[in-house]
Design a protein around this nucleic acid. Structure first.
Ligand SMILES: [Mn+2]
Ligand SMILES: [Mn+2]
Ligand SMILES: [Mn+2]
Ligand SMILES: [Mn+2]
Lengths: 228, 228
DNA sequence: CAAAATATTTAAGCGCACTTAAATTTTATT
DNA sequence: AATAAAATTTAAGTGCGCTTAAATATTTTG
């Protein structure tokens, strides 16, 4: 509701910041698909509004006000993703791009109502934390990439990378979603691909075996459960 | 998804067109809260794209392509209004402004899914017709303003004017919504205000009397039901 | 540590959607 | 039919978010 472009810049800065190191212009330009010159322009505007700290040639980080706006946007984004997935029934691979638009066009009243309907969820369908009305993030549970599980270990899916639609679409085909239990049956050391067993939903009690590449396994994060 | 500004111009032209007479620049400027000069600018662009027929100094009307886009937007708008009202539970006075934003930010897939969840409704919460996927409008039922009912006549609400939020908010307070039966108990010829009886929902079986001004009565449209 | 490679900023310019003020056309009035 | 009033268009200009090309700063590397 603020300004679509500025909100998008703030979200990218938020999502790409890691303590200690500034977010560079190139990273922002890449994620938003605009030129570096456009980024420099916008960073100057955001800095003038005291939303970010901008150190020329070095990068930026969010200031208090910018952080609040970014978290509000992330909240809108993740609540929409959760609603689209759980209530509307859109496929996981579609919710990000849809939420990308809706997040800029929803009143706080609407977002709060969606949150209420969902029962105040803590995580979105990718396993990312949903900020509360006050901007507080739930604690993330500790997770490791599926690629690091040993053979015969199993874990529940805690988070999946939300960067690629193709990746998410394939996960859906394999029956992989949040909380699903996965066991590593076999590791082929030639290419580090895995044979995994995806446990089905309770009612069906079945399991399915699938082969996945190392790259896939590196983008699925599981909570270690137990040896077997 | 096309272009927010252009879509808004097309919607205004669509909603303010009545067969035979063109939509003037002033009407558009009024509804969109922009200057006449801005309207002239945009009308030239829309005409160049063959979306409208623009006759300088006279006005505009939609051409085939513009009509299709306008109807698609109206569809998105009214499906959102219906969803927000019936499923999300937003108050009637809020759904128009919320839908005004969401209509530009929703994929066809999402809109179709909402329509499906709603069970393919024919009318939005103001009683306005919802165009189908193919752009076909359901037939409107014949209605007259409540102000034209005679004393002791009653009718079901078929449509309410969606122009004023304050008006809609007050209707909600009076318990007036679509399909609600209203009987005219008394007309005061001094100011043409009415004493009406609003029939409650089936389960409660109650009725409530309210006094409303002529202006209110002129913006509520009912289907004539029967003399009593 | 100087040269080369890379990243970033500056400069100039564009299309969009708007503004106000002036010019022009249409419509209403006498 | 001439004139006054109202509506509309034209003209000139603005801020926004973007582009490409050139200039400059930083980082890498031989
Ligand atoms: Mn997302
Ligand atoms: Mn997400
Ligand atoms: Mn509406
Ligand atoms: Mn409506």
């Amino acid at each position: 509701m603020f300004n679509i472009s500025k909100e998008d810049y703030l979200r990218v800065i938020y999502k790409n910041y890691t303590a200690g190191s500034l977010v560079t212009a190139t990273v922002i330009a890449d994620k938003l698909n605009v030129s570096n010159a456009a980024v420099t322009d916008m960073l100057k505007k955001l800095a003038k509004e005291k939303l970010i700290k901008y150190i020329p040639y070095k990068g930026v980080e969010l200031l208090q006000k910018g952080m609040e706006l970014a978290i509000s946007l992330v909240r809108r984004h993740r609540i929409w993703e959760t609603y689209l997935y759980k209530i509307i029934g859109l496929p996981l691979s579609m919710v990000d791009s849809e939420a990308e638009n809706l997040e800029h066009s929803s009143s706080d009243e609407l977002i709060n109502r969606l949150e209420e309907i969902l029962g105040y969820p803590e995580f979105d369908p990718h396993g990312d934390p949903i900020p509360s009305k006050k901007g507080i993030l739930p604690k993330k549970k500790k997770s490791i990439p599926l690629s690091e599980l040993e053979v015969d270990e199993q874990g529940a899916v805690l988070r999946v990378n939300d960067d690629s639609d193709e990746f998410l679409e394939h996960l859906t085909k394999l029956g992989i979603e949040l909380n699903r239990k996965i066991k590593v049956v076999e590791r082929r050391s030639f290419d580090n691909s895995l044979l995994i067993e995806v446990h089905a939903d309770a009612p069906l009690r079945g399991k399915k075996e699938h082969s996945i590449s190392e790259k896939y396994a590196k983008n699925i994060f599981v909570e270690v459960k137990s040896k077997k």
